[in-house]
């Protein structure tokens, strides 16, 4: 699926994209592609799903907002209804079913950190389940460089 040039391009683009007038031209020069071909390949990698995103990666916390990982234990028989109730909140950015007694894990993204407690209380009312919040106390590292 990825040819050698795609891999080179993906690895280069993970490191950072230049802030200049013709950034695709600059990246293309580095990896040995024309500007046009660089644009075409990035578009194809996004369309094909090999890249999930291309652009600024925002840190909501530095903008005054907050993320909070939360978990609840949903009874198996009621799981889908509870998942639907949780997903209906626009602040829920991701939600995963996981193999554990705490079987539903979701991330809240809110514009101000003070909203977290109020929001988890609303999710408890909507689901009938106790919501455990796991706010991060410290971040040790974020980011995985995948050798494509």
């Amino acid at each position: 699926m990825l040819d050698a040039m795609d891999r080179k391009l993906v690895n280069r683009l993970q490191a950072g994209f230049p802030l200049c007038e013709r950034p695709f031209d600059e990246v293309g020069c580095e990896v040995g592609l024309t500007e046009e071909e660089t644009l075409r390949r990035v578009g194809a990698l996004l369309a094909g799903g090999q890249l999930s995103r291309f652009g600024p990666m925002y840190n909501i916390e530095r903008m005054g907002g907050a993320f909070c990982l939360c978990a609840l234990s949903a009874p198996e028989a009621d799981f889908d209804r509870i998942a639907e109730a949780v997903n209906a909140f626009p602040e829920v950015a991701h939600n995963y079913q996981r193999a554990h007694k705490l079987n539903m894990w979701f991330v809240l993204a809110v514009e101000t950190a003070e909203n977290i407690a109020e929001l988890t209380a609303r999710i408890e009312r909507a689901t009938g389940c106790e919501v455990l919040a796991f706010p991060k106390l410290e971040e040790f590292f974020i980011g995985l460089r995948v050798e494509a």
């Binding site: 993906v10 683009l13 993970q14 490191a15 950072g16 994209f17 802030l19 990035v42 990698l45 799903g49 090999q50 890249l51 999930s52 995103r53 291309f54 652009g55 600024p56 990666m57 925002y58 840190n59 530095r62 903008m63 974020i142 980011g143 995948v146 494509a148």
Partner: peptide
């Protein structure tokens, strides 16, 4: 506020 401008692989 921006960690970096980059591609995020799937």
């Amino acid at each position: 506020a921006i960690r970096r401008i980059a591609a995020v692989p799937n």
